[in-house]
Computed example of a mutant assay.
Amino acid sequence: MVSRRVAAGWRVEFRTGSQAVLVRGQPVNHVLHAFLTAFSCCAWGVVWAVLALTNKVERAVLTVDAQGQVITVGAP
């Protein structure tokens, strides 16, 4: 199941023998965008605002129970 998620664009953030935390998306680098906004006399602020509003980071926790079934919490 983890391999299928990784092939679909997720990355493993944390993993144990019976649990894995998977993440999709990247957080916005606010320091970089603040620098670009200051350097461009606030013109880059529009791009920064759009990225901050539309960007999302998704997390999913995959757990294997005692019967060997995978339980997903957080994302479909």
Rank of each mutant, 00 (worst) to 15 (best):
A38M: 13
T54H: 06
T63A: 10
A43L: 14
W48V: 08
G17S: 10
A20S: 10
H33C: 08
V21H: 07
A20N: 03
W10N: 01
W10P: 00
H30V: 04
G25S: 06
P27D: 06
N29A: 04
T54G: 09
V50N: 08
K56V: 14
L62C: 05
R15P: 14
A20Y: 06
F39R: 03
K56Q: 10
V47H: 15
L32E: 10
F35Q: 10
R59H: 15
A34E: 14
V23Y: 11
L32N: 05
V57T: 12
G45F: 04
V23W: 07
F35G: 13
A34P: 03
W48I: 12
R11P: 00
A34Q: 13
V21L: 10
T54N: 05
V28D: 01
T63D: 04
W10Q: 01
A60D: 13
R24M: 03
N55K: 13
R59N: 12
L62V: 02
V28S: 07
V64R: 10
V28N: 06
V50F: 12
L51T: 08
L32P: 05
V21K: 09
E13M: 11
V31G: 12
A38N: 10
D65G: 00
S40I: 04
N29G: 04
A38D: 09
V12T: 11
G25Q: 03
W10D: 02
A34D: 13
A49V: 15
V28L: 04
A60Q: 09
D65Q: 02
L22W: 04
L51H: 15
R15G: 04
S18N: 13
T54E: 04
Q26M: 02
C41T: 12
Q26I: 06
L51P: 12
V47K: 15
A66R: 01
V31R: 14
L32V: 13
A43H: 11
A49D: 04
T37F: 01
R24P: 02
R59A: 09
A38K: 08
C42H: 07
A66E: 02
W10K: 00
R11K: 01
L62Y: 03
D65Y: 00
R15A: 15
V31Y: 09
V31P: 07
A34N: 15
N55C: 07
Q19R: 14
V31E: 13
R59D: 12
V21F: 03
S40R: 08
A66W: 01
V46M: 15
P27Y: 11
V64H: 00
E13Q: 10
L53F: 15
R11T: 00
L32M: 15
V12G: 03
Q26G: 09
V23I: 12
V64W: 03
S40C: 02
R24T: 09
K56D: 12
F35S: 11
W48R: 07
W44D: 10
R15D: 14
A34T: 10
D65A: 00
V57I: 05
R15V: 08
S40A: 01
L51A: 14
P27N: 08
D65L: 00
E58P: 12
L62R: 04
L32R: 06
H33Q: 09
P27I: 06
L32S: 11
G25N: 03
N29M: 11
V57H: 12
V47A: 11
V61K: 03
Q26Y: 02
H33P: 01
A66G: 00
V64K: 02
D65I: 00
V23G: 09
T16I: 09
W10F: 00
G45H: 05
L32Y: 08
V46P: 06
L36F: 06
V57C: 05
